[in-house]
């Protein structure tokens, strides 16, 4: 490559660099497909066939059938009416509630989880860190029915915290709060979402090297400049990816909400649940499928964004 002028050079280099980042993935994929077909390497994949078949039968077939049947009327003919009902009125409201609930709870847990992760990575002792990490591992796995009931004992009408607040003259139930509302659910969801975020954020914060801080300082950067140009950009992708994971997680959550509100809160999973349990709208036996397809749609959007974030980050990650 001859270097004629600065601008030109940078441009051609840009193209070169761009190719280079994406090529290894593409190249190896093509190559492995060729090898796969050419050298009979498919035999190698026989061993995973049982797994794939199992997954196909018990996950993919049900998922696909939900989407397919969403387009069927009661008589089996193609129709879009399930969707037109599913995305209007009370069902539209529940989509709105679900997305609102997931957004709120994901935003809160992202912020709090990040703060906790920062606090424990920065702490000098190993013990505190070990305790918080192990605790997060356990609490992130807590959920569902028991969680719902322990919050009834805490923030329910006769819960401990409610009682204490009432004693100091502030009964939250007199001020519009209810555990059995979207706000209440948001609080309960934090119980497993925050630890999840802590677990997600510890490795990337850990991976911020002291050398980068030192190098930035030696180059004249202030602490704020370090965070703006190096620390921030490095933490943004895992933070965003984590946010999307939390969003999906709370969007799909059913058990906690069902146990807490006895299936009365208008969010999509609960609506699908009550349609399954027999509250079928006459003439729209497949309405639940339309709602399910809608949920899959939302989750797919989140998954695509997640993939996009990961790909952006992988420019500078291995």
């Amino acid at each position: 490559m001859t270097v004629s002028s600065l601008g030109e050079d940078r441009e051609s280099e840009g193209g070169f660099g761009g190719n280079n980042t994406s090529e290894p993935i593409k190249g190896s994929a093509t190559r492995s497909v060729v090898r796969f077909l050419k050298y009979g390497n498919w035999r190698r994949f026989m061993g995973v066939l049982p797994f794939i078949v199992y997954l196909g039968i018990f996950l993919l077939i049900p998922a696909i059938s939900v989407v397919v049947d969403a387009f069927k009327g009661d008589n089996g003919n193609f129709t879009l009416s399930n969707f037109s009902i599913g995305f209007s009125g009370v069902y539209f409201e529940s989509f709105k509630n679900s997305i609102q609930l997931s957004l709120f709870s994901a935003v809160i847990s992202t912020v709090v989880g990040l703060l906790v992760a920062l606090a424990i990575v920065a702490s000098p002792g190993r013990t505190l860190r070990a305790v918080v990490t192990a605790g997060s591992g356990v609490f992130a796995n807590t959920g569902g029915v028991p969680l719902a009931f322990s919050f009834v004992a805490t923030l329910g009408n006769f819960g401990l915290v409610t009682e204490l607040l009432t004693k100091i003259g502030y009964n939250p139930y007199n001020h519009g709060f209810s555990l059995y509302s979207v706000l209440g659910l948001t609080i309960v969801y934090e119980y497993f979402l925050i630890p999840l975020m802590v677990l997600i954020m510890i490795p990337p914060i850990d991976a911020l090297r002291k050398e980068w801080v030192d190098a930035a300082a030696s180059l004249g950067a202030t602490r704020i400049q370090f965070w703006r140009y190096i620390g921030g950009p490095l933490l943004a992708p895992p933070l965003l990816a984590g946010f999307l994971v939390l969003f999906t997680d709370s969007f799909a959550a059913y058990a906690t909400a069902a146990a807490l509100t006895s299936g009365t809160i208008p969010i999509v999973p609960i609506q699908i649940g009550s349609l399954i349990s027999g509250n079928v709208l006459v003439g729209h036996a497949h309405l639940g499928n339309a709602l399910g397809a809608g949920m899959i749609g939302v989750v797919i959007i989140a998954a695509i964004m997640y993939g996009f974030v990961q790909r952006r980050a992988s420019r500078w990650l291995r």
Partner: peptide, 18 residues
């Protein structure tokens, strides 16, 4: 000693919530 292990850690999520 990898740089950022975000993708790994996200896939390592172990949650039994629902």
């Amino acid at each position: 000693g990898g740089v950022l292990m975000s993708s790994q850690s996200v896939t390592e999520l172990v949650e039994l919530s629902e």
